[in-house]
Design a protein around this nucleic acid. Structure first.
Lengths: 342, 342
DNA sequence: TTGAAAGCGTTACCAG
DNA sequence: CTGGTAACGCTTTCAA
């Protein structure tokens, strides 16, 4: 912290006015080539960096993106998913000239309060929301306040006219791929270990399995037999797999909505093929075939959607009233990582 | 983002000067009780929050703590450790009025460059460093620049006079506890699955096992027999455990430097007791007894050590020259989480 | 193209 | 204890 080098120092060094330095930084094209070079050399020589605080005072933009760091999930197995997403977010944001500001919140109520806090003090330019669910109050709130944001997760149950930008991974396509893979390997009694109905993510993943099985000519009655619903967890997976294996017509393979359930199924030590979801460290460790989400890409998409809003809408949005184009979104494809378990 | 409420608005509402409002916020004791109350009511009524940018311009303090988000480790199993630490850090920092700013860096060189970047632009008040190793250039750099920081991890190989504040978990105490636990259960041939010599963390954890075994009267020669060193990973753990089990005098129990190695040992499916380190989600999932680090407490300690520096040293440090008191530190105790594996 | 001046919201330093 | 005034470093008018 030897010295705070300001724009004035650079100007003096390059023998131009402060304004010219600012121009070189913000709209280089309007400055004469030679001057531009001289200023850039000065910037490099002095190690100058624009003070974000001063810039923010003038422009009103903090170049900060706020994201919540989630506590370790229930059994923590899929915690790493969020972790990797956050890493990708930080990296993509940095590339775009933004930084990620972390916050925590135990529930939606606390999170709304934190939004307010953050907005008042650090004034982040945007929020990235994860783990969205039906009737999520956070999106409504941010929409009302006209704060830019993206969600990683589809707007479950939100009517299109109240839409907002989102990024998600196509879970159904993933489980469809997994199911197809097992069918091709000769399986026909392929069960699905899923969560209770009502979670957007869980239902989506089940749908991919169901439609692929149906396309294979498997009727609704048999499908119902093969469809097991339980809350997430390793013991739950073990119990469920046991039930499916001890049925009159046992399953020979299992597509699971999560690695936790899949791991449980694996622990039965019975001869079945198992495919999990999320490609968590555990999957790698125990040789569990799993569906991998392109998290870095998802994070990058979140950032680019945000940048679009931040650069485009600025004040134009407020002036023109309603949005002209529907919010952008992006649905990415998971990939199947083959290991010993299938 | 309806309206930016400034200190002036509050002053007008409470019918006092801007300065008085500032005083109520920063040094409440010098303001008359009644005025204070009126101002506080105004703040609440208007939803006022001091603009961090403006405050920073004036005070030079950003109320930002920078921390690196690490990419998923090798096999990712212990990734959740860092994740939980980061969560705790965010929470503790928020309680102290600070926010956590994230950054990434692939190696030490890139990280130093990022320090510079961050300091120039966002100007965080402090850094929290994790995964410190021998001859870590980051601590040297920050010390030179007189930037406040703490490390989560002891200053391995750093002479005391170049000391800095740190927080760590006593790995040796943990493995000693685990070893004692196994001894009490009647085991005597207790092996240690560790990393190659030279890593501070690994050597420390080995030491706890070794000293406990020695105290039990087990000689150096036998100790050498029981001490196995390998790089981290599940397959590595499986191989190592196999070797230790097939020895002339096989081990009956294993203390491992990581959950990855322990998981590998467990996968041999042989009848041994295994204890891992870090209590990762995998451990919970497969019933592995493991040593748990008090991560939330570690994070809280980091924050309080930082706050001490930030509030105390301000300018006094530079004025008086060398530090009067040695940097503070805190060594926390891990705890043994018993599960099926031991 | 370049230079001068204003102002963003705070807090620190003065007098009253 | 309260009220004015200056200053932090930057970008954005406005003139030259």
């Amino acid at each position: 912290m030897a010295d705070k080098v300001t724009i004035g120092d650079v100007a003096r060094y390059a023998k131009v006015s402060r304004q010219t330095v600012s121009n070189v930084l913000n709209s280089p094209e309007i400055v004469r080539e030679e001057t531009r070079r001289r200023v850039r050399d000065a910037v490099k020589a002095l190690g100058y960096r624009a003070s974000q605080a001063a810039r923010q005072m003038r422009t009103g933009r903090s170049r900060l993106i706020a994201a919540r760091i989630e506590p370790a999930q229930e059994d923590g197995i899929n915690g790493s998913v969020f972790d990797r997403f956050l890493h990708g977010l930080t990296e993509s944001a940095a590339r775009a000239g933004y930084r990620v500001l972390l916050y925590t919140a135990d529930d939606h109520g606390a999170e709304l309060a934190t939004f307010d806090d953050l907005l008042g003090a650090y004034d982040p330019d945007a929020f990235v929301l994860t783990s969205t669910d039906y009737g999520d109050p956070r999106t409504t709130w941010l929409l009302e306040q006209r704060i830019p944001f993206v969600t990683f997760g589809r707007p479950w149950g939100v009517p299109p006219e109240r839409g907002y930008p989102w990024v998600d991974v196509d879970g159904a396509a993933g489980t469809a791929m997994a199911t197809r893979y097992l069918l091709d390997a000769g399986h026909r009694r392929i069960g699905f270990l899923g969560w209770p109905e009502g979670s957007g993510v869980g239902d989506d993943r089940r749908a991919g399995w169901a439609r692929t099985m149906a396309a294979e000519g498997i009727g609704a009655a048999e499908l119902a037999e093969l469809d097991y619903r339980t809350s997430d967890g390793v013991p739950e997976g073990e119990a469920a797999a046991g039930a499916l294996l001890d049925a009159e017509r046992p399953v020979t393979a299992l597509v699971c909505v999560s690695d936790s359930l899949a791991l449980g199924a694996l622990q039965t030590r019975r001869r079945i093929c198992v495919i999990g979801f999320d490609d968590t460290p555990v999957a790698r460790a125990v040789g569990l075939t799993s569906l991998s989400q392109p998290l870095a890409e998802a994070a990058a998409s979140c950032v680019s959607l945000l940048i679009g809003q931040l650069d485009g809408d600025g004040a134009a949005d407020r002036a023109r009233g309603a949005a002209e184009s529907p919010p952008a979104h992006r649905l990415l494809q998971p990939s199947l990582v083959r290991r010993r378990s299938a």
